[in-house]
Design a protein around this nucleic acid. Structure first.
Lengths: 239, 239
DNA sequence: GCAACTTTGTTCCTGCGTTCACAAGCGGCT
DNA sequence: AGCCGCTTGTGAACGCAGGAACAAAGTTGC
């Protein structure tokens, strides 16, 4: 799980194209987008809410409501035009522009992310890498040289970084976060196990491996204490 | 964000120590646990709900309700005994036993996770690594040799793997998932951008980098279209 | 030993998100 | 050209999680 630091999910008052979009809906829209692009590659030009919902693993009513946030781009009796829908979802999610990404903390995880280079699905080019370790500074990782964390504000401002990814140990995370904010970064993806304190106009999303594992552990515990040793062997009932 | 594949959060009927625990509460409990262990290291023996809630970034009423799921281990007028609380949360989350972890797909991310060795916070030893690449098989990563994915069922059953982590490309994820399930794995952490189909007794948690970035992109778009070019320079108002 | 203060545990309530269900709309078929 | 069937879009109901407020309980000081 990723826990949201605060529940803001829309600008309080705005006359933007669409009304307030629930945070959960935004996440699902990103998933629909992936399903749609994948289907388009397979030559699918039209999909009904039922089909798309099935592929995304959600209720079709939920899907239609989510899509209604984007606007009314379906055709009754037919379904949604895949290409058209992709276009509008991308616009809503702000994917028409590129978001330059900075990765801070070039340890195991940071290294992995830096090597993605273009990051999962394009549109998120990694343009800056930072670390405290002087020995790492200057060394290229994934084709991009590492800069020192002290230079975060200047470099981020200069390269117009919009998203900062924090992969540092917990103790360094808040300091790094402050530096990113000082550099004008307003979107932060935090892999460090701490709650970051940020100004209200900065959006933080947290991905916490330890929490994910512990939640799985909880369900495992529940399961095994709820049932005594199962008699049946494990059968994979795929449906 | 991490999206939950299904909303199950408690065994339907059970006379277990505590009643049904909301999924969100489980995630928060894991956070309280981290805060508590950190405070204990600093010698703190007692904390009030207000203090703990502040450190975890949640409302104190929410915290007290969460803790009520684990049982009544606070002292009115005083607060919670940190050590005692840690003990009971760990028990609820099933952290008293070790959960052996298997990592499948030793690419950038899998490599990073394998190198953690003991995984964030102990209790989750990595005991198996898998990949399709024959060249990787046999090579030790983080001190553990890589096995071929074909051997997943046997190896997982043999080493009593309880948690499988999928770091493969999207197209391989479902196959790998089926193999893990066949090997008796009932908890899966999925980094691949697909919705896995699993039997109902298997719990899947998904961590989706692309979705996280796109959600951040959405907020960024909202913000910049809501306001015209800001006049003030970025000031870090930490509160 | 009693009283006052502090903090928990819980109940009630409010608000949000999801689901259901139906009316409106569009294409195809005759 | 008109009707029929299918699918969207949305209004209304349901259910759940979060927050406020209060009563119970325990501790400390007198």
């Amino acid at each position: 799980m990723t826990v949201h630091q605060h529940g803001r999910y829309s600008t309080p008052v705005d006359d933007l194209p669409s009304r307030a979009v629930p945070e959960a809906a935004v996440g699902r829209l990103a998933i629909y987008l992936r399903v749609l692009t994948s289907m388009i590659e397979q030559g699918v030009t039209t999909m009904s809410s039922e089909e798309l919902a099935g592929a995304a693993g959600v209720n079709s009513a939920t899907l239609r409501k989510d899509l209604s946030y984007v606007g009314s781009y379906g055709t009754r009796g037919v379904g949604y035009d895949t290409a058209r829908l992709v276009e509008h979802i991308e616009q809503l999610l702000g994917l028409t522009r590129h978001h330059s990404v900075a990765v801070v903390g070039i340890g195991n995880l940071g290294h992995a992310l830096a090597n993605y280079g273009g990051f999962p699905d394009r549109g998120f080019p990694v343009t800056a890498l930072f670390d405290v370790d002087e020995d790492l500074v200057g060394i290229p990782v994934g084709g991009l040289p590492v800069d020192h964390v002290n230079t975060i504000p200047e470099v981020c401002a200069e390269r117009d970084v919009t998203i900062g990814v924090i992969c540092t140990p917990a103790r360094a995370a808040q300091t790094v976060c402050d530096l990113l904010v000082a550099g004008g970064v307003r979107c932060i993806l935090n892999f460090a196990p701490v709650m970051l304190q940020v100004p209200s106009d900065v959006e933080v999303r947290r991905v916490d491996l330890a929490v994910e594992l512990q939640i799985l552990s909880f369900y495992q515990a529940r399961r095994s204490s709820g049932r005594r040793a199962g008699t049946a062997d494990p059968v994979a009932v795929i449906r």
